[in-house]
């Protein structure tokens, strides 16, 4: 087990190296970058240096005058030493901006994931136990509908119904107009109130896979021989479903849930952007569009690390939870 984990981690480092190299190369190859527009802007100021001089100076100060490979290794060295640079757009150290916004995304993801588990697993079990019944059809269709709904469209619909027509919520933003005058409890409630629509969007558009997964797994287990044995013994249906079948489904469910834990930090890019929630998704979207290389590099590397971590976690959990699985 230990050698396996070490092997996987070493492999992950290699993959991470290639991925960051690719991303860095892509970012550097892009024309019309932030630096150019910045230089253009600076050169138009009265009495300013010409554009060429500005661009040379800015490139030098941002370390863009080196070649891609040399630039990459400089970046890699800085990154490894924990020096993530300053964000061009936000003009603060990347790590500080990251620290400011990450926890909001984490809270949002954590709440929506908890809700997903609470809704999806019971519904998945019900659907599986009543296979081909009307309930099953409704639940399956609902899960597929959730998968099929484009998040941006669903979010807009929610805005139209609940924010525009019913006026229960604000259309976007994390805090209301009176936020500054509220006491700390009021401020907390204000934020919570503004998070309801984004979380609803997240839950509904991403609940489908978990629900279907529960159903498929449950069906597989319910068709197993030992369930027939349990029924033949005369156990109540409740015991059969929740004691014998569900516990075996848990093996894979725990694996999946564990594997999605790192995903709590990736943020919800589309939803956050639509509702202007200043989480990591919205922030990185802003920095991506204007070509803020330090922040984008940091964010993408961060996501790559999270992906690798969740893959590794899934595999390890699989071995830990299911004693039948042995990893060499």
């Amino acid at each position: 087990m230990r050698t396996y984990i070490i092997k996987r981690i070493l492999l992950s480092v290699l993959i991470l190296f290639s991925v960051t190299l690719i991303i860095y190369a892509v970012l550097r190859c892009l024309p019309a970058s932030y630096v150019e527009s910045m230089a253009m802007q600076l050169a138009t100021a009265p009495g300013a240096k010409p554009y060429e001089e500005w661009i040379a100076q800015l490139n030098a100060s941002y370390g863009l005058d080196k070649g891609i490979i040399a630039g990459y290794f400089t970046w890699l060295g800085d990154f490894a030493r924990g020096n993530f640079g300053d964000s061009w757009k936000f003009t603060v150290p990347v790590i500080q901006k990251f620290h400011d916004v990450i926890w909001l995304s984490f809270v949002m993801s954590a709440i929506s994931f908890t809700l997903q588990i609470l809704i999806a697993i019971p519904l998945g079990i019900v659907a599986a136990t009543k296979q081909y019944s009307r309930t099953d059809y409704v639940i399956t269709a609902g899960a597929l509908l959730g998968i099929s709904l484009p998040p941006f469209f669903f979010a807009t619909l929610l805005k139209l119904v609940f924010a525009v027509n019913l006026q229960w919520f604000d259309v976007s933003g994390l805090v209301g107009r009176t936020y500054a005058q509220l006491d700390s409890w009021g401020q907390f409630m204000d934020k919570a109130h503004h998070l309801i629509l984004p979380i609803a969007t997240l839950v509904i558009t991403s609940i489908g896979p978990l629900m279907r997964y529960t159903r498929t797994n449950m069906l597989e287990v319910l068709n197993a021989d030992y369930i027939r044995t349990a029924r033949a013994k005369g156990l109540s249906e409740h015991t059969v479903v929740y004691k014998h079948a569900f516990r075996n489904t848990l093996v894979t469910l725990v694996t999946i849930i564990g594997g999605s834990l790192p995903g709590f930090f990736t943020g919800a890019l589309i939803t956050e952007t639509l509702f202007s929630i200043p989480g990591i998704g919205f922030t990185s979207y802003q920095s991506m569009i204007i070509g803020d290389i330090p922040f984008t590099m940091f964010y993408m590397t961060f996501i790559a690390i999270l992906t690798l971590a969740s893959n590794l976690l899934t595999d390890i959990l699989y071995a830990v939870v299911d004693p039948r699985v042995r990893i060499a």
Binding site: A32, S284, M288, I290, A304
Partner: peptide
Amino acid sequence: YCIPSMPLIIILGAA
């Protein structure tokens, strides 16, 4: 698998 595809596509789109 590890390349964050959505951010990358957004960056390329912006470019």
